[in-house]
């Protein structure tokens, strides 16, 4: 999988504030319902899961199905309880994974 992009609205926040996370990954999300020009079904190949963890604890998980548009875009929120690492992991049909991590500081 290609390297995803992750953007945080802020990396330094006050206790109790939330951070808006925007992610984008380049992927065809081939649904398994589409046919090619010769009429043959194009095999399914999609990203099935996106997971965000803070210091190993689950924050948010997205289960993707073929009805998610190509190049999955996601915007969501995180309220870190303290300073630490946010980890973002995408997994596809073949079990391939790609991860990114970002530091946040809570003052």
């Amino acid at each position: 999988m290609e390297r995803p992009r992750v953007r945080l609205s802020a990396s330094v926040i006050a206790t109790g504030e939330t951070i808006e996370i925007r992610t984008l990954i380049s992927h065809p999300m081939e649904s398994g319902y589409r046919r090619d020009a010769d009429g043959a079904v194009v095999p399914r190949k999609i990203i099935t899961r996106f997971r965000c963890e803070f210091e190993g604890r689950e924050v948010f998980t997205w289960e993707l199905r073929p009805g998610v548009a190509a190049n999955p875009y996601l915007q969501f929120r995180v309220r870190p309880p303290g300073s630490g690492q946010l980890a973002f992991t995408w997994t596809d049909d073949d079990g391939a994974e790609v991860s990114i991590s970002e530091s946040v500081t809570v003052t």
Binding site: T18, E63, L64, G67
Partner: peptide
């Protein structure tokens, strides 16, 4: 999506660490 061939489009699981239950994405209809 009630009239897609595969109706379940996504599931989002939250924990209190999310702070706010809000998501934006793009779907196929």
């Amino acid at each position: 999506a009630t009239d897609n061939p595969e109706p379940e489009v996504s599931r989002f699981r939250f924990t209190p660490l999310a702070g706010r239950a809000e998501v934006v994405t793009r779907i196929r209809l």
